[in-house]
Design a protein around this nucleic acid. Structure first.
Length: 585
RNA sequence: GCGCCCGUAGCUCAACCGGACAGAGCACCUGCCUUCUAAGCAGGAUGUUGCAGGUUCGAGUCCUGCCGGGCGCGCCA
């Protein structure tokens, strides 16, 4: 609908006197907007004001000239100039009637578009270190990432969802060490978990489950000699201490055994994360291993490309990447003086790998604390000969979790955090998914568990689901009265839907595809959420103002057509958000 | 210190590459269930969009400077 209006305006502008002088570049694209106020018609265009300066005329005069150049069409019944020079378009009722019929004809795919056709996009999200269960913050990432992926798919993009598994590096070593020490403790060996170790209960669980397979590793003979490790915190340095512990563990257990403990922990935690995400409706098609990048030579391949572009140098025994050549704050190490590559090296290799898999957009969803990381990854991509624009990063701000007035500490290391699973158990998947995407991703989110729990019946998600269930309820009532609904008869009597409530619903249904496109384009699911809430509100209002099951079959079938279209759109919208659409509540 | 994000009603948040009188929910008050589920509806109060300038037909939105909050500035991941 919007597109049709755009085409009308564009054609008119092209015929405007003096427009040729502006050249193709100077020709502004007409922007058609939905009006906020119904008195302004259905759509509005600000093009006349934008053309005022380049054409040297008054906005309202230009607006009139444009209107005069728009031919009479079935679509538009009236155009008027308003305010400083807006052109307001009032559309014909028949246009909305055609749209409501289209809703049911297209069913599950109504609202889908093709603005992203031909674009292959890789959406990477959550990618939490597999060193513990997902917490509430990850839940926000999962909800946001999965919903954005759904929106992109709905707008015609070819979408691939992926989770980057950080299964290499120091954090994993610390996890393996923590598991091993818990095994030793369970065997009655008097040894303390380092201050830098992971102390969550799940570490003990993993240790208990794995211990039988590592009997030779669980022995006091593996303990370091007294005083052979640097002091732990608080007297010493926790990092130095834990690193020395890891070196000792590797040496005394052997690399294979240490690796086996690590893999055991990794499998357990990653399995748990997968189950959790899956139950939450976030289902990456691929769980991409960081370690595999080194094993496959992809890291070396990436480093070779950077080196080939002359953007690396050696200093202090390490190899550095000239990130400053691309505007980053400082150069970055890619190969340490001990010969091991850095996380950053893996990461640019990962992005190159994604690129080489054929994606033209790499959408990364990161925690806001990683914002400083964006310029260097983009620099790396550019240094490897790719356009830096292929990388798009959406940052998700923190979730501050409260129980009443008490802010909950969220530290994976300390093991004191609310898990995503606990949240789901408390408030339910639907409410959690909905709540997380109701706010802009770049806004901080205060989440009060007690409030979410106590108000679960007042949660907006139920309001929308209720509207959906209400339509089903009406259809059940129809059946119980031994009546049937004729969709075709409804289509034939749509002209009877003249009440304000009906007009409002018709217009909102027609807007839905635009909302989906907008939400996808801006990676902003909250637009969809808000629109659904308003659609539900219109339905509830309509329900209270009019009866649907009336004696007049024409009117009845038309009304049932309308509310079933609403049902379909709510269902489609909730599906995109990852929320269920129950038939009864 | 430098950099990024944010500041909107009592609270939690919207506001579509700058657009028409800044909108919802929660909380509060008043009405509506012999009628398709009252998880609903109707009505009522709520603002110097942190502060001060600037850009222009027009600024919550863009620019500059302050104030306040969050995050980042490793050969960690």
């Amino acid at each position: 609908m919007k597109k049709q209006v755009e085409q009308l305006v564009a054609a008119a502008i092209a015929r405007l006197p003096g427009i040729d002088a502006l050249g193709a570049d100077g020709l502004p694209v007409p922007e058609i907007e939905r009006t906020r106020d119904r008195r302004h018609g259905d759509y509005a265009c600000n093009i006349a004001m934008r053309l005022a300066k380049p054409l040297g005329g008054k906005p309202r005069d230009i607006a009139q000239a444009i209107i005069d150049l728009i031919p009479a069409a079935d679509l538009v019944t009236r155009m008027e100039i308003a305010g400083p020079g807006f052109i307001n378009f009032h559309l014909a009722p028949a246009a909305f009637h055609a749209e409501v019929a289209r809703v049911l004809a297209r069913g599950d795919t109504y609202g889908h578009g093709d603005t992203g056709r031909g674009r292959k996009i890789c959406v990477e999200y959550v990618s939490a270190n597999p060193t513990g269960p997902l917490h509430v913050g990850h839940g926000r990432h999962a909800a946001y990432g999965a919903t954005v992926a759904n929106l992109l798919r709905a707008t015609g993009h070819e979408v691939h969802e992926e989770y980057y598994v950080n299964d290499a590096g120091r954090q994993m070593d610390i996890l393996a060490l923590s598991v091993w020490i818990r095994m030793l403790q369970s065997a009655g060996i008097d040894i303390a978990l380092p201050a830098g170790g992971y102390r969550g209960g799940y570490v003990r669980d993993i240790a208990a489950a794995a211990a039988p397979a590592f009997t030779s590793a669980v022995a006091a003979t593996h303990l370091p000699a007294a005083g052979s490790l640097p002091d732990d915190a608080p007297d010493g340095d926790a990092d130095l201490h834990v690193d020395a512990w890891i070196d000792h563990a590797r040496a005394t257990l052997g690399e294979d055994t240490f690796r086996a403990i690590l893999d055991c922990a990794l499998d357990s935690i990653l399995g748990d994360i997968r189950d959790d995400m899956d139950a939450f409706g976030a289902r990456p098609a691929e769980w991409f291993s960081e370690r595999s990048l080194t094993d496959s030579g992809a890291v070396q391949h990436a480093l070779d490309k950077v080196a080939a572009s002359g953007k690396t140098y050696e200093k202090d025994g390490a190899i550095w990447f000239r990130a400053t050549d691309y505007g980053d704050e400082k150069d970055r190490v890619v190969v340490r003086d001990n010969g091991r590559t850095t996380y950053f090296a893996s990461d640019i290799a990962y992005h190159l790998h994604k690129r080489e898999r054929g994606f033209d957009t790499l959408l990364d969803i990161w925690g806001a604390d990683h914002h400083g990381y964006v310029p260097r990854v983009r620099a790396g991509i550019e240094a490897m000969g790719e356009s830096p624009d292929i990388l798009e990063v959406q940052l998700v701000q923190f979730v501050a979790l409260f129980r009443g007035d008490v802010k909950q500490q969220m530290s994976t290391r300390s093991g004191e955090f609310i898990t995503l699973r606990e949240l789901r158990d408390e408030v339910g998947n639907d409410a959690a998914r909905f709540f997380f995407v109701s706010r802009s991703n770049d806004q901080h989110l205060d989440f009060d568990l007690e409030l979410a729990k106590s108000q679960s019946n007042d949660n907006p998600v139920y309001y929308i689901q209720y509207a959906h269930a209400r339509v089903w309820s009406v259809m059940r009532e129809l059946e119980s009265r031994n009546l049937t609904w004729s969709e075709s008869n409804g289509r034939a009597h749509l002209h009877l839907l003249t009440a304000d409530h009906e007009q409002a619903l018709l217009q909102r249904l027609a807007r839905y595809p635009e909302i989906v496109a907008l939400a996808a384009r801006q990676r902003a699911p909250q637009h969809l959420v808000h629109d659904l809430r308003e659609l539900a509100h219109e339905l509830h209002t309509y329900y209270n103002a009019h009866r649907f099951i009336v004696d007049d079959a024409g009117l009845r079938d038309a009304r049932l057509l309308l509310i079933n279209a609403v049902r379909q759109v709510i269902c489609n919208g909730l599906t995109l958000v990852g929320v269920s659409a129950p038939q009864s509540m």
